[in-house]
């Protein structure tokens, strides 16, 4: 039983990371019906921009805690610029095309951005380790844990809470829910769907970039970091039910806890955990845990 506490701690930390990384994808899908493969590239660009800025910040000997501001600034900057460019420059023209063509368009964007990142930042890894140590460590049961990892849980709760509040307690959010529920009805009610899309995509892109920017201090930012993020986000979002924020949270917790349990109890299965859960959930609930039933069209 003494493995239970570390499993819970590691699992929740990892779940929080998964949720932050995946929530932008589910938001964009929920509103726009776009499964954004370029999500992984936005994650990577966010990480690179944050790592570059953090590196400069510490080279200039500026106040250490200011680096946390940089993380959020990079996420907002990358999300706004890339999000709006992609939505206005590409996705806008694909409204009304079928889902697979749009998925493939974002796959093309992913291919292009992979090389663009390589051309800008080169092949060397960018470390941005300083903020990771700033928050210190805590000892639980004689084992040291990094407080930065715990801050992920706080961030995930804040992001999730803010999304819930914005959707359910604000006028804008309620309009958005109408769009999510029935796009045509929303248009008929006079909601300007065309304005909702760029805003949603920019926010989704910011969340993707935030995932990358906040991860930058824990990892070594290097080519290809976005590829695995795509598949992880897909899995979390599909398990939870595409377009459902609560679902993404539950999906992240399920994957996170199971992965931690596997690492502690049966390391050889770590690679399969996420796909096994996705398969099981889809077998039991063909549309994910929190997907609303679709109206049958006769």
């Amino acid at each position: 039983m003494n493995a239970l506490v570390p499993i819970l701690i590691d699992g929740l930390n990892y779940s929080a990371w998964l949720f932050i990384v995946a929530v932008g994808m589910t938001l964009i899908f929920g509103v726009m019906r776009v499964l954004n493969i370029a999500h992984g590239s936005l994650y990577a660009v966010g990480a690179y921009v944050a790592a570059t800025l953090i590196g400069r910040w510490f080279d200039a000997d500026l106040p250490a805690f200011g680096s946390f501001g940089l993380i959020f600034a990079s996420a907002i900057g990358v999300g706004l610029v890339l999000g709006l460019v992609l939505e206005q420059g590409l996705l806008r023209f694909l409204h009304g095309r079928d889902e697979i063509a749009i998925v493939l368009a974002t796959f093309a964007v992913f291919l292009i951005l992979e090389d663009v990142v390589l051309l800008i930042w080169g092949t060397d890894a960018y470390p941005a380790y300083q903020p990771y140590g700033l928050l210190g460590t805590s000892s639980i049961g004689g084992i040291a844990f990094t407080n930065y990892d715990f801050s992920l849980v706080v961030l995930a709760l804040v992001v999730g809470g803010a999304a819930w509040w914005a959707l359910n307690r604000t006028r804008m959010g309620k309009l958005l829910l109408i769009v999510i529920h029935d796009r045509e009805m929303a248009q008929a009610l006079g909601i300007n769907v065309r304005l909702v899309y760029p805003a949603t995509f920019a926010i989704g892109a910011m969340l993707a970039a935030l995932g990358g920017a906040y991860s930058a201090p824990m990892i070594s930012v290097s080519p290809g970091i976005g590829v695995d993020v795509i598949i992880l986000s897909f899995a979390v979002v599909v398990i939870g039910g595409l377009g459902s924020i609560e679902g993404a949270m539950i999906g992240a917790v399920m994957v996170g806890l199971t992965r931690a349990a596997s690492v502690h109890l049966a390391p050889q299965f770590e690679l399969f955990v996420i796909y096994a859960i996705m398969t099981l959930v889809l077998i039991v609930r063909p549309q994910g845990l929190f997907m609303r039933a679709q109206a049958r069209k006769i």
Binding site: A3, I143, T146, I219, D228, R259, H264
Partner: peptide
């Protein structure tokens, strides 16, 4: 390429 080793480090520590 997973980049997240929190759980592995915990299990090595314990």
């Amino acid at each position: 390429g997973s980049g997240q080793y929190g759980a592995e480090i915990t299990s090595l520590l314990s």
